[in-house]
């Protein structure tokens, strides 16, 4: 019902494409601007969610559910990435007593 109303009114696919683009860029901005490693991981999650929103929008406007299955797989990968990334961060914090990404430079010669 909602979809039929949406298509008749002016909410176009382009609106969701632009919205997802802006959300993705905010994620990129966060990765660039913040030095806290946990916030950087959170901004990566935000970028993944922007792609999820785009997938769902395309799925709805083209009338198939395939893209929504892909959103599931993106969520699976995001969950796995978050667990491993956070445990690596806890380990790094134990060694360096900081989460500042600028301080993780031990491999630098």
């Amino acid at each position: 019902m909602v979809l039929a109303t949406m298509l008749k009114s002016g909410v176009s696919l382009e609106f969701y494409v632009i919205l997802a683009t802006i959300l993705f860029t905010i994620g990129v901005l966060g990765v660039l601007i913040r030095k806290n490693a946990i916030i950087i991981l959170m901004c990566v999650e935000l970028m993944l969610n922007a792609v999820n929103l785009l997938m769902v929008a395309f799925s709805t406007y083209h009338g198939t559910g395939d893209a929504q299955v892909f959103v599931f797989f993106i969520m699976v990968v995001a969950a796995a990435e978050a667990t491993v990334g956070l445990s690596i961060l806890v380990l790094l914090y134990r060694n360096r007593k900081t989460v500042d990404v600028g301080m993780f430079n031990k491999l630098k010669g």
Partner: peptide
Amino acid sequence: VVENVQGNSQGLVENL
């Protein structure tokens, strides 16, 4: 834009 291919039910758990 394709309208009502699966009767607007593509987001429900049955179809997914």
